[in-house]
């Protein structure tokens, strides 16, 4: 396949993934602001921080209120991560690589774009937000469903999956990093109700609150939350899961092409290092430093794949 096509597929699925994560982040933020009406501004500010949007948001000159943050994250064309920017980008990339997609995947993407463009044409009021967020998540589910249900498991599929998991790993790490101080085991007490709300919001922003109860007991504990989001191999948004999936897909490519590159070594290294870790050793190292190191490694992996599979000239 063309390098440009691999690039288009990769970014298409990064965009789809990010639009969904932005929606989920917003949902968690909304819950937080509802439960802690006194300090809503700092919650919204941390949502913006997680979405890596501080610079673009502050350029707007708006206060950190629900209405402005919602608008920024859903609709702002100057925000490179807003849902509308992402779905536009997903669709533009899909058009560019139209020949690599099944009709179902293309139509799901195009239809998502048509619907969201319509739904997000005007500012979304707080009362309508849950409906809008549900729609965004559903659209990305439809695209992913079409991918799984109709695409041949070949190189095209592999690049789609690699894009998805590079993006997802990045997003999970950011969510954790913005909230890492909430998780630090400073005192071994049972969390206050405030802590509980914070912890739940982290889990919600990766849709993990019910899985948490399946794996652990009902009480939230910061070390377990960190363990689940970083190391748990069964949790589809954990860093370990994302790295494993990237490695699987890279290995398929190596099999098909009969050639291994340095990106394979890099990805396997990431899997290995996560496998050998315990959450306590991560806390010892420093959660923030650990997450920053992961983010850098993830970016380097993306750039290496980009170069070794000739995404650009």
């Amino acid at each position: 396949m063309l390098g440009r096509t691999a690039n288009g597929i990769y970014w298409m699925f990064r965009a789809v993934e990010r639009s969904e994560n932005t929606a989920r982040l917003l949902e968690a933020g909304l819950r937080m602001s509802l439960t802690r009406s006194k300090d809503a501004a700092s919650e919204w500010s941390s949502v913006i921080e997680t979405a890596a949007g501080r610079f673009a948001f502050e350029k707007r000159g708006d206060p950190y209120t629900a209405q402005h943050v919602i608008d920024f994250l859903l609709r702002d064309k100057n925000n490179p991560s807003s849902v509308m920017t992402m779905i536009d980008s997903a669709r533009t990339n899909a058009r560019m690589v139209r020949t690599a997609l099944t009709r179902e995947v293309w139509e799901a993407t195009n239809e998502s774009w048509l619907r969201l463009k319509d739904a997000l044409a005007k500012p979304v009021r707080e009362a309508e937000l849950p409906k809008a967020l549900e729609m965004i998540r559903r659209q990305s589910g439809v695209i992913r469903g079409a991918l799984h249900g109709t695409m041949l498991r070949n190189e095209i599929y592999n690049f789609a999956r690699i894009g998805t998991f590079i993006e997802r790993g990045d997003n999970t790490a950011r969510i954790l990093d913005v909230k890492y101080y909430v998780l630090l085991p400073t005192a071994q007490h049972v969390g206050s109700s405030l802590d509980n709300v914070q912890w739940e919001s982290i889990l919600r922003s990766v849709s993990a609150h019910s899985s948490y109860r399946y794996i652990y007991d009902a009480n939230y504990a910061p070390a377990q939350i960190a363990e689940m989001l970083i190391l748990e191999p069964r949790m589809p948004r954990s860093l370990a899961f994302c790295c494993a999936k990237i490695t699987d897909n890279l290995n398929h490519l190596a099999g098909e092409y009969g050639e291994r590159n340095s990106c394979h070594v890099l990805a396997e290294g990431m899997v290995q290092r996560l496998r050998d870790r315990t959450v306590l050793s991560i806390f010892d190292e420093g959660l923030h430093d650990f997450l920053q190191a992961f983010l850098m490694e993830n970016i380097r992996l993306g750039a290496t794949i980009d170069r070794e599979y000739r995404f650009y000239e």
């Binding site: 396949m1 063309l2 390098g3 440009r4 096509t5 691999a6 139209r98 020949t99 190189e155 490519l253 092409y257 050639e259 599979y309 000739r310 000239e313």
Partner: peptide, 23 residues
């Protein structure tokens, strides 16, 4: 068949070639 743009193509050894993930 592949859908190519000018930026995917270059001349190598007197032939027109497209840049693929395998070269």
């Amino acid at each position: 068949v592949e859908l190519v743009e000018g930026s995917d193509l270059r001349i190598v050894d007197g032939r027109v070639k497209m840049r693929t993930t395998r070269g």
